[in-house]
């Protein structure tokens, strides 16, 4: 939606055009209009709007899309190995978030 885009240039969305069959599934499932089909191939046009929900990767029959998905932001903010992951985890635990 207009006015609400999250941080710039952070998303892990990757598309390998060779594997794309142009089936349009990604454009159908993406809730943020990230793809267009041009010359029978998918293209990323709206990268920063991607919320890494993973719908496109799940539904791409050619396995052309990869994205580290984490729809439930609160669940996985604190994956181990992330810088300050532990500290953040602790913080949230303190507040009763089980993460």
């Amino acid at each position: 939606m207009a006015g609400l885009t999250y941080l710039k240039s952070v998303v892990t969305l990757e598309l390998s055009a060779d594997q794309c069959t142009g089936c349009r599934m990604c454009t159908t499932v993406c809730p943020h209009d990230v793809f267009v089909i041009k010359e029978k191939r998918a293209r990323i046009v709206n990268r920063d709007a991607c919320m890494e929900c993973g719908a496109c990767a799940q539904n791409c029959p050619g396995d052309a899309i990869s994205v580290r998905s984490g729809l439930c932001g609160c669940a996985s903010i604190f994956i181990r190995g992330q810088k300050h992951g532990r500290m953040t985890r602790y913080f949230f635990r303190m507040w009763g978030y089980e993460v």
Partner: peptide, 25 residues
């Protein structure tokens, strides 16, 4: 913590945000 409820935030963005925010907090 509202990121869990929004419909536009990405996980990678949250990581980036937390990396900066937690030390500041």
């Amino acid at each position: 913590t509202f990121v869990g409820a929004t419909t536009y935030t990405s996980l990678s963005g949250v990581f980036k945000e937390m990396k900066r925010a937690v030390p500041a907090y």
